[in-house]
Amino acid sequence: MSRINDVGGMVGFPAIVEEPDEPAFHADWEAHVLALNAALIRRGVYNLDEFRDAIERMPPEAYLASSYYEKWFTAITTLLAEKGVATPEELAGA
């Protein structure tokens, strides 16, 4: 069964928006999310396929409501909890 990330050919999405002079990152936290993910993969906490899978199994509503690096951050925290690195409560700062 295809998952929500498999949007090829799906109808109902809006027009494509181009951003002139777009920066590589729209905020510092996006760069930190990218770097955290690279660091965790290099360290073997999880691998690239597990990371992709963690994005792709997001619930459709959350997937569609999240920006690109928000999806990455969701995947990172999902995997950190599943791998037992930290509890969801610790990750949420509760």
Binding site: A31, H32, L36, A39, F73
Partner: peptide, 29 residues
């Protein structure tokens, strides 16, 4: 941004990343 900072601090505390590495990976990218 707060949540990312929190997770990064937690991972530093547990010895899984260090601040220098994060900056270096951003520059590399």
């Amino acid at each position: 941004s707060e949540r990312v900072r929190h997770v990064e601090a937690l991972l530093e505390e547990r010895g899984l990343v260090d601040a220098g590495e994060i900056d270096r990976r951003i520059d590399e990218f």
